[in-house]
């Protein structure tokens, strides 16, 4: 297990280094002179020069890369050019909306998908299964942000059960904040829940065909006992992969859904930064998102080993 963990840690470190190099070269090398790019075409030469100095563009690329990485590691994400504020603080504020939204949506997605997938698998081929599968076909096909608009139309504008947008802030009211995130979380989770339901079902059905399930029945376990004791844990292995990938999708999907509900999350920050060519903000937010995804994959890898003893020995 230790060997497995070490090996994963090593590949985690390599992934992070390569990813950061990629981001750095796309943002700071690709557009040519970063300062003139950020200032636009009509900028005064002296303001461009000032920005160059501020960004440390007189240094070599290597030095700039290390100072950027060093900053990221110590929590200094640089200073936003347009807001004149530390990026770290801005990101932290926004993260308090985006992250809870993604987690909320992931929980919803799991809460819907596990029972629905197990239910459908246990009734394979019957009316209940066909209904659930039909519903997931629709769920997978619905564009999340459009579904969000429909939710707003129905529950906020017509029924007035939920706010149509905005966010009161956690300090203000946890309850109202949760309420403000509920419609976005539902909109975000629906397509993912549909995918996860399908994966859960097919993974379980694969398990039902395994020889060891027949062995379990031959021992005297009922079909239900065999499913719970032997099927679920094995079926979880592919499901975990999907959950890991989904969190990344949810986190970035949140960026889009936030636009529908006017939530002050990472989405708004990043889209403003793009229109204002504030590359410093873009660079740091992108690195942060990629970092999250890579860390997530690492955690999932460890979870695999916890579930499957065969992995602990393998490389």
């Amino acid at each position: 297990m230790l060997r497995y963990t070490l090996k994963r840690l090593l590949s985690l470190a390599i992934s992070l280094i390569v990813a950061s190099l990629l981001i750095f070269s796309i943002i700071e090398v690709a557009p040519g002179d970063v300062a003139s790019f950020m200032m636009g075409m009509n900028a005064q030469p002296d303001t461009v020069a000032a920005l160059r100095a501020e960004l440390g563009l007189d240094q070599t690329k290597v030095a700039r890369y290390f100072s950027w990485i060093g900053g990221m590691v110590t929590g200094d994400f640089g200073t936003s050019y347009t807001y004149r504020a530390p990026v770290a603080q801005m990101v932290a504020d926004r993260l308090w909306v985006s992250l809870p939204l993604a987690v909320y949506a992931l929980l919803l997605s799991i809460l819907i998908a596990f029972p629905a997938g197990i239910f459908a698998a246990a009734r394979r081929g019957r009316a209940a299964d066909v209904t659930v599968m039909g519903a997931t076909q629709l769920g997978v096909a619905i564009p999340g942000f459009w579904f969000a608009m429909m939710l707003v139309l129905l529950f906020a504008i017509r029924l007035r059960w939920f706010p149509a947008g905005g966010f009161p802030g956690w300090d203000e009211s946890i309850w109202l904040s949760l309420k403000a995130l509920t419609l976005p979380a539902i909109a975000l989770s629906l397509p993912q829940a549909a995918i996860l339901t399908r994966v859960m079902r097919s993974s379980l059905l694969d398990m039902l065909g395994e020889d060891f399930m027949r062995t379990a029945r031959a021992k005297g376990l009922s079909a239900r006992q065999a499913l719970w004791r032997h099927g679920i844990r094995n079926a979880l292995i592919p499901v975990l992969t999907i959950i890991g990938m989904q969190f990344a999708v949810l986190l970035t999907g949140a960026i889009i859904i936030e636009q529908v509900f006017y939530l002050p999350g990472l989405g708004r920050l990043i889209f403003q930064a793009i229109t204002q060519r504030d590359l410093i903000v873009v660079e740091s937010v992108v690195m942060l998102l990629v970092f999250t995804v890579i860390m997530l994959n690492f955690v999932i890898d460890l979870a695999y080993a916890a579930i499957d003893p065969r992995l602990r020995l393998r490389t």
Partner: peptide, 19 residues
């Protein structure tokens, strides 16, 4: 492949459009 996979699609799009 793993490295590209660790860039969610939207992040790739953000990176490209930013530049």
């Amino acid at each position: 492949n793993d490295i590209i996979f660790s860039f969610p699609l939207l992040v790739l799009a953000i990176l490209l459009t930013a530049v």
